[in-house]
Design a protein around this nucleic acid. Structure first.
Lengths: 173, 173
DNA sequence: ACGATACCAGACAGACCTGTCTACTCTTCT
DNA sequence: AGAAGAGTAGACAGGTCTGTCTGGTATCGT
């Protein structure tokens, strides 16, 4: 059920996909859905939280190599994933675009994920002995966001090369 | 009329704002609207095209200084604009998130703007005598996209510092 | 065996969506 | 003066949206 919602929300957007479509494709009755989720916004929030835990799991599964190598592996993985045909940008960025109010629970969940992401970069940079981990983590966030937007809207090969170049410039050789 | 649509589309999203609200706030009859625009999608496309010409005009108004200084002025302007209270991300990125189909006219208009933007960076880098203008323009697109997303979702002061750091790393001192 | 629980299918309410249409008013040009 | 064009207000059709509610069914633990 959440799986179907994830596929549809990510692939077509949150507002364009209705409850009827989700329950139809999930093979679930409407009453069942509303027994599990109080409202559609709760489903959207669950979708965001699930994507966040999924990405955290992926990041933690990258355990081999030095911190610097792990950072590079994370970005390389994002590039590989972004070059896939199903890629349609970052679920957090795309969903935030549909929720203008920053105090909305969905936006709060997105904010929490971004905080984790920034902290992940900072911790890896700190472990790598980087002289300015905090600010460099912010720069990596820039590159990350540019990556997900670029792979969605521009030529994948071009974006991949740009990301590698940017990492080289920011992290040094 | 387009002005009202721009304000609402940018501020609240395309799908959440209906025709009724646009004509009500613009003080225009529905028949009048449909005399000017065949459909809502045409209005969205007009919104995108207008934003594109607006940004082109702004970029061309930055004429003083060396190419390098003009590039920095453009990014500084984006930072100033992004720190404003009305900022809600990039209209192109946000709208693209609501139009999954890349062959849709709205997406085509967004694609055209992004091509212009990349070419602007490349031409300025070429004029500045940069050794690799094409790839560096792609890197600047990464930073640009990271900038607009970051100013929308993160702390403005942090993003501003990150952008300045990133430009320093990418363009050199 | 039996009650509780969870499921399904689907009708329904009330609101909102886009887009069309009618009827009327005002301006402008000839 | 009179026709044409463009605006206004608003009803209307046909569809979709979220969320509730009614029946009927199946699967449990006891």
């Amino acid at each position: 059920m959440l799986e179907t919602a994830t596929r549809l929300f990510y692939g077509e957007g949150v507002h364009t996909v209705g409850i009827d479509r989700i329950i139809a494709e999930a093979g679930v009755a409407k009453a069942t859905f509303y027994n599990h989720f109080p409202s559609k916004d709760d489903l959207v929030r669950a979708y965001i939280v699930e994507q966040s835990t999924l990405q955290r799991g992926l990041a933690e599964s990258v355990r081999e190599g030095s911190p610097r190598q792990r950072l590079e592996a994370i970005f390389a993985f994002m590039c590989d994933f972004g070059a896939g045909l199903t890629f349609r940008g970052c679920p957090f960025v795309n969903t935030a675009a549909e929720y203008p109010d920053p105090s909305h629970p969905v936006r709060k969940a997105i904010e929490a994920h971004r905080r984790w992401n920034r902290d992940l970069y900072r911790d890896l940079l700190t472990a790598a002995g980087h002289p300015d981990p905090a600010r460099t983590a912010d720069v990596l966030m820039l590159i990350r966001d540019g990556l997900v937007v670029g792979f969605d809207l521009d030529d994948p090969a071009t974006v991949k090369a740009a990301v590698e170049e940017a990492l080289l410039r920011v992290l040094g050789p």
